[in-house]
């Protein structure tokens, strides 16, 4: 007699029958009589509503030529019936600095909120439009490639539109008998479609080199006099996105100073002056340190000593 429960934020499930029967009781001729009214049945129609939001906490930081840059979105069926949704990505938005190339839209099949290549399913419009029950959410990834020639600091808008496949339109638009359970489908306040945008920001890896010096004079003080030892500290910090490959530091010794033999350290580890298996050498005029591949967010610290002549 009664339909499914109404535990949804979106309200009573579409297709639920609301049945009303009144009962009367009275006495006549000493007998109690119970009668039922006619049952009157109305069906709850389907409200078509959907929301979409970007799940990225901020700009997705990327670099020139990056492949499969992931923009993450979350769509939610806020209607009262199971509904499938068409997803349309857009990477050619105006008002931004460049247009990345669309690779694919991917559905977070395993529901972990993270793009898993080969695990999550590539979305094909009209083929695997996701079917969401009322209040159900789904994470969707839009993968893009970044052109190789973008300048640092350029931003691109990546957006998607999701639309109820039953139909969209102005709120109140009705699709007769198209609702779940045989009722009508009615466009809700969202228009049964929703847009969301995220941004990708080109911020290539770059290195900052900070050099500092401490002085120890022959008398235990810090004055710069002949015989004082200067310890130079070089900190190379890579920022941005990606990795700087084969990063190296070269630092010439000042003419007024003499290199202190075997004084190079890398990350606190002593290095020899010869060109050999370790990463540093002194070639008579300059200190060379091969730092190798350094990822963004990392830093390398080199120290060496000279004596003031």
């Amino acid at each position: 007699m009664f339909g499914a429960g109404a535990a949804h934020a979106a309200g009573t499930l579409a297709g639920t029958d609301i049945t009303n029967i009144a009962t009367a009781s009275y006495e006549t001729g000493g007998t109690t009589v119970d009668i039922d009214s006619n049952p009157v049945v109305i069906k709850v129609d389907e409200l078509l509503d959907v929301t979409a939001v970007s799940s990225d906490p901020g700009d997705v930081i990327t670099s020139n030529g990056a492949q499969n840059v992931v923009s993450t979105f979350r769509i939610t069926n806020t209607g009262n019936g199971p509904e499938s949704f068409r997803i349309t990505p857009n990477v050619t938005n105006g008002g931004d600095d460049f247009n990345p190339a669309l690779v694919s839209v991917v559905i977070d099949t395993n529901g972990n909120g993270v793009y898993d290549p080969g695990v999550d399913t590539v979305y094909v419009a009209g083929t695997n439009d996701p079917n969401l029950t009322p209040d159900q959410s789904l994470t969707v990834f839009v993968l893009t490639n970044i052109p190789a020639t973008q300048s640092n600091g350029n931003r691109a808008q990546v957006s998607l539109t999701t639309a109820a496949t039953t139909g969209t339109g102005a709120p109140g638009t009705t699709f007769a008998s198209a609702g779940q359970g045989g009722g009508n489908a009615v466009v809700g306040t969202t228009g049964a479609d929703a847009d969301a945008s995220g941004f990708v920001l080109v911020n290539a890896a770059s290195v900052a080199l900070v050099k500092s010096a401490t002085v120890l004079d022959p008398f235990g003080g810090t004055t710069s006099v002949p015989g004082s030892i200067i310890t130079y500290t070089l900190v190379a910090t890579v920022s941005g996105n990606g990795t700087l490959n084969n990063l190296s530091i070269n630092d010439p010794i000042p003419a007024s100073a003499q290199y202190v033999a075997s004084s190079i350290t890398l990350a606190g580890a002593a290095q020899t002056d010869a060109v050999d298996a370790d990463q540093a050498n002194f070639n008579g005029t300059r200190v060379n340190v091969a730092l190798g591949n350094v990822a963004a967010g990392q830093s390398r610290t080199v120290t060496f000593k000279v004596r003031i002549q």
């Binding site: 009664f2 339909g3 429960g5 109404a6 009573t12 639920t16 609301i18 049945t19 009303n20 029967i21 009144a22 009962t23 009367a24 009781s25 009275y26 006495e27 006549t28 001729g29 109690t32 009589v33 709850v44």
Partner: peptide, 21 residues
């Protein structure tokens, strides 16, 4: 409701459950 008979109906009451939805 209507008493369509020619006899009075005593202790008349109407009960209506509220539909679940």
């Amino acid at each position: 409701y209507r008493n369509a008979s020619n006899k009075p109906a005593a202790n008349f009451s109407v009960t209506n459950p509220i539909p679940a939805a």
